[in-house]
Design a binder for these strands. Structure first.
Lengths: 109, 109
DNA sequence: ACCATATATCTGCTGCCACTTATATATGCT
DNA sequence: AGCATATATAAGTGGCAGCAGATATATGGT
């Protein structure tokens, strides 16, 4: 996809995990490789996607690159969500019913 | 994907369009076919996905099925977003910078 | 020389999406 | 009863793109 939307970027479970780790603060690539138990090239590829989407930024510290979250683009999600948010306020019962229907966790690997 | 997450459901641009149309109220399938300029089986397949994800419900009106939004599952998105939302408050300047970097629209077809 | 990282390439797998055609079912109309 | 309409679902095809894994190379810091 030439210009993937923020939706698509964030739909990828591994990328969400990366962001969730970065939520705790700036991190070098090596840390992420350990945490995610993935190959370094694999992590770097995802970081590339996140960087291109403007969701993370990096700064150089000697040989390492420290990655930080840049939450700005997530506002796109948030504003798409806004009209729906109004709807589910006061319908939390429906959510509960839906969750009851689900036998197990979504396949998040 | 056996149990696609709400993220994946909503990452699909056509499905977001369907939800956006339903935001204006209950609609029969035929309306959606017209609005989206898609084949009827195509629309029905997306509706199936949305229904399985609990994002829409249908009720029968004679031969027609009227679809309604069920925003409940979107709360999952919203709560994932919550920690990030705190971050971008007060960083709207960064968002602006990011948007300036983008030459054209994300490829949303 | 060694380390951390980025990037590139290739392969293989898998799964999605669109489109078409066909069929089944329910309902309504005449 | 017979026909039209609305919808769902299935089956088949084509295309395309994502992701993981492996490997190789380049670069810059120590």
């Amino acid at each position: 996809m030439s210009q993937p939307s923020t939706f698509e970027i964030v739909a990828e479970p591994t990328r969400r995990r990366i962001l969730d780790v970065l939520l705790t603060g700036e991190r070098p690539v090596g840390d992420l490789v350990e945490d995610l138990e993935m190959s370094q090239p694999g992590v770097s590829r995802h970081l590339r996607v996140l960087r291109d989407a403007g969701l993370v930024t990096s700064r150089t510290d000697a040989q390492r690159r420290l990655y930080t979250i840049n939450p700005g683009p997530l506002a796109e999600l948030d504003s798409w969500l806004a009209p729906y948010r109004r709807l589910w306020a006061g319908r939390l019962d429906q959510l509960a019913a839906h969750l009851d229907d689900m036998t197990d966790e979504p396949g998040e690997r």
